[in-house]
Design a protein around this nucleic acid. Structure first.
Lengths: 219, 219
DNA sequence: ATGTTCTATGAAACTTTGTTCACTGTCAAG
DNA sequence: CTTGACAGTGAACAAAGTTTCATAGAACAT
């Protein structure tokens, strides 16, 4: 995994902050001004590097049009806080990327840098295996309303092999949707838990992004 | 309050959807293509109208640079989803503004780009009065940890007169904090529900922003 | 009838912005 | 010493994108 340089990270952070504050991306010249570059090409080079490293996607020719790949950012700058207890116990807090988007605007990238949800299970000294790459997803729509997952809830997704009955985040028509996975013999269905929706949603090609592990919801 | 026309709302929705999907705003020409306008000026006019009505902010000259004003959108198109039960019962889901973090003091409405759904209690047919102006706050810090409200949780606040035992969002030294309200005779205290904090926090001047009605938290 | 507002066309002007090219300096590895 | 990767300057270009102007039909109230 190729690391980001300090300046690249700074530029990425500035872009995030700009989006968070203004709700739209900065132009190359905005970045140039911020970092006092004498040439736009300096910025251009860094953006190319960021794209090559996979943390940033650009749309060629389009203005102020970017997309941050949270997984890549997390890989390149993972935050792990470790508390050592008096005895052999320890607690790890691991930052997980926030992949969801909010209703009126852009993904709130300010949250992705902080600790949204944390793994708090005490770990034994020996079994310090790498935690799965979880991420959080804000739920849109009411497809899982009967499973008590409502629009606006946030779901913690973890990758892994899904089994029958799991609620999964699946890619359908380029959209990430939350459905329950139903396996009937060799057939696989996705079931929306909403009486108003078709009961079973047959799928041929299935891209499962992860399994919903927990929900954040109003009480 | 001037309403949005159907087309204006459609355009706004498309812009939102575009942002949600691509993480950057559509250009005027993108919108033109989407709605099959023959002229960019048709879009331009609608955007002007949306800005005049206060739901959209534009940065003149800048490309793909917009900002949605959630309060205005909420005012102009308050979302109330109403489920009618078989008997006289009914449940209303009402969109409420998301006021951001509680940490930095006053609610940061710039961050308020999200909408959380609030479940109203089942309402009887006759008493369909307008819901109070609720808002959501993100909790920072651990002052209410013993009340099971943790850092990162989101609390739904509703204005109103607080009574003994209520958890309130109160303004102390310019900062919004979450505390339990204790009335002892004529004296009023604010109590942080954390063993490490002073038990009772006497206050003379008290600005209560609202009463915590519900919490959003990881399960 | 008449003016006004809203919505739209069509073309053009103009600004912003991404992109490219040629060139320079630095720093570390071979 | 040389090579190559990296970071940057400075100028120029072309595409993308916003804005303006002139015009016109439909809906609607006066």
């Amino acid at each position: 995994m190729e690391q980001m340089t300090k300046k690249q990270k700074a530029i990425l952070d500035y872009m995030k902050a700009h989006v968070s504050e203004h709700s739209y991306w900065p132009s190359i010249r905005d970045i140039q001004a911020k970092f006092r570059f004498a040439s736009t090409n300096a910025v251009f080079g860094h953006l190319q590097a960021l794209e090559r490293k996979g943390v940033l996607q650009r749309i060629p020719g389009a203005a102020r049009a970017y997309k941050i790949v949270p997984e890549a950012v997390a890989d390149l700058s993972e935050t792990v806080i470790r508390y050592e207890g008096p005895d052999d116990s320890a607690i790890e807090l691991r930052s997980i990327p926030f992949a969801g988007s909010i209703a009126a605007g852009l993904p709130d990238y300010t949250e992705s840098s902080g600790v949204l949800a944390s793994m708090q299970a005490p770990i034994s000294e020996g079994s310090r295996r790498r935690a799965p790459q979880s991420f959080a997803l804000r739920v849109r729509g009411d497809s899982m309303i009967d499973a008590n997952i409502n629009d606006g809830d946030t779901v913690i997704i973890e990758p892994g092999t899904a089994k029958h009955g799991d609620i999964v985040a699946a890619l359908i028509d380029g959209e990430t949707t939350l459905k329950r996975l139903i396996k009937q013999g060799s057939k696989i269905y996705l079931k929306a838990e909403n009486q108003n929706y078709p009961e079973l949603f047959p799928v041929s090609e299935l891209v499962i992004q992860g399994i919903a592990k927990s929900v954040v919801r109003p009480l």
